Simulated assay, not measured.
Amino acid sequence: MTLTTATPLERALVEEATKKSGLVWVRGAGPARALWHVWHEGAVLLVGDGPGEQPLPGLVAGERAEVTVRGKDKGARVVGWVADIEELAPDSPEWEAAVAELKGKRLNAPDAETMPRRWARECRVLRLVPAGSVLPVPDGSLAAEPLPTAATTRQAAPEGLPKLLLRRKDRKPRG
């Protein structure tokens, strides 16, 4: 399924923004998580749920997820869209193509040569396919409110400190 109800401009926005972003926020059946991904053949590819890989909780094949793409420069929300979740079967042609793309983008892998075999044994490879038009931009911030606390991180500077700092600047070098 593709972005059938989306306009050509929306489809282009989803593809370009997602390609350029190194990170997407994905919400399945639970809270949204920041995940690294690769855009390949019209969908987001994810690998995880194995030792040393990102967790993919709440992302179940056959269900839908909400994807929020952030801008690479400022980290601000660029676009949000709904995706159908597909789990690729290990060693299938689709899985092989996905793993080839993911392997090239996986940073700091301790086992770069044997990584595809490990992914086949221990991880899940998911494909998030856009399904519908883009999501409306929400009103207000989506940031979680900080928990109330008595802790403080800012205290007034000691009275003499500004004088000490200014005096050092005015000192003449010894010659």
Rank of each mutant, 00 (worst) to 15 (best):
G42P: 00
H40E: 11
P55E: 12
V69H: 03
G28K: 13
E15Y: 05
E66C: 04
D49G: 11
P31C: 04
A32E: 09
R27Q: 13
P55Q: 12
V24Q: 15
L56I: 10
P51M: 00
K20N: 12
E15K: 08
D49K: 02
V26D: 09
Q54F: 09
G42T: 02
K20M: 09
P55W: 11
G28V: 12
V44A: 03
P31S: 09
L45M: 09
W36Q: 14
R64T: 12
V24A: 15
G52E: 04
L59G: 05
L46T: 07
A32S: 10
L59A: 07
G30T: 05
Q54V: 10
R64N: 05
G52W: 04
V26Y: 11
E53A: 13
G48N: 08
V38R: 09
L59N: 06
L59W: 10
P31A: 11
R70P: 00
L23F: 14
A34S: 03
L59H: 06
W39M: 00
G22S: 14
A32C: 03
E66K: 07
G42Y: 02
L46M: 07
T68V: 14
V47S: 09
A34Y: 00
V69M: 02
G30M: 07
H37N: 09
P57Q: 13
R33F: 06
A17R: 06
E66M: 06
G42D: 00
V44K: 03
G52H: 04
G52D: 05
W25L: 12
V44D: 04
V38L: 05
G50M: 05
P57E: 15
K20G: 12
E53N: 14
G42W: 03
E66L: 12
V38Q: 08
V67W: 02
K19W: 02
G42R: 00
W39F: 01
E66P: 00
V67P: 03
W36A: 14
H37W: 11
G62H: 15
W36N: 13
E41Q: 02
G62I: 15
V44L: 12
V38I: 06
V47N: 08
G22E: 13
V69Q: 03
